[in-house]
Design a protein around this nucleic acid. Sequence first.
DNA 1: TAACAATAGTTGTCATGCTAATTATTGTAA
DNA 2: TTACAATAATTAGCATGACAACTATTGTTA
Lengths: 142, 142
Amino acid sequence: MEIEQAYPYLMERAIRQMRMVSQQTFLQAGVDITVEQWVVLYIIHDGQGLSQVEITEFAFKDAPTVTRIIDNLVKKGWVYRQMSSEDRRKFEIYTTNEGKMMVKKLLPMVMAIREQGIVNISESDLRVFKRVLGRLIENFEK
Amino acid sequence: MEIEQAYPYLMERAIRQMRMVSQQTFLQAGVDITVEQWVVLYIIHDGQGLSQVEITEFAFKDAPTVTRIIDNLVKKGWVYRQMSSEDRRKFEIYTTNEGKMMVKKLLPMVMAIREQGIVNISESDLRVFKRVLGRLIENFEK
DNA sequence: TAACAATAGTTGTCATGCTAATTATTGTAA
DNA sequence: TTACAATAATTAGCATGACAACTATTGTTA
């Protein structure tokens, strides 16, 4: 089928498979976390005190999605909201100690998966790959 | 933020933006269809008489998702299920005339979006891009 | 042939993604 | 200062994606 050669199809498929591998890895490590929760947890961990809007921008997700993911991270005890003192519409989001431990535990796995993906791909091909991705993003920006 | 340079992040972002552009295009054309519905409709149109399992494989989606997308396509009158005569567990899925018209209307738009994405990307870079995607898919297969 | 395994499709549950609408707060301009 | 616009976050509704459980049918094997 012709669609299987189209680049959007290949991208969807690669992403989906990577997501499945990640999810399986988290499961086998006995950690109950989704890939999306991981992404947001990592951003919060890296940013400490970001507002939800800022997290929204980094994660490239929309506000309602980020609200709910943070709700779930709070339920799991990995993250907490603190009312901003300057702007009462805002929260500052931080990781708890458990959240930090979770990042420390999962980050090596995530890095390993990322490496697994690019096995047998040359440095120069990877550079081209990233450049094309950047161009695609630009081309769809307007 | 370091995560923004990682290839999985760039891939997610490129896909998401492309999806948004597609959705906007469909909306402006006055067609009420999601990108996922488009993918499945196109596969059905191209395959005529495929079973849902086969569609599942082509679309790289899972069975419940395909069931529900087909439900929606049936509701919109673009597709119908016909019980298979050899195997009563199966349906054969076909496009209606309206479905065919819809494909004829949308396909040029989809192709144009695909072209828009790769503007200013050389032939050779695009070849490398696809090769890397194929390798990624392989690397995450096991 | 009878019991069991495998397959095709559906349904339910939960999480995510998108859109629109809502609340609370802050910024701005007459 | 008051009225209005903009911003931050939430809520609700719908579609999709992943997973588990289920029904109906077909295949296989003792």
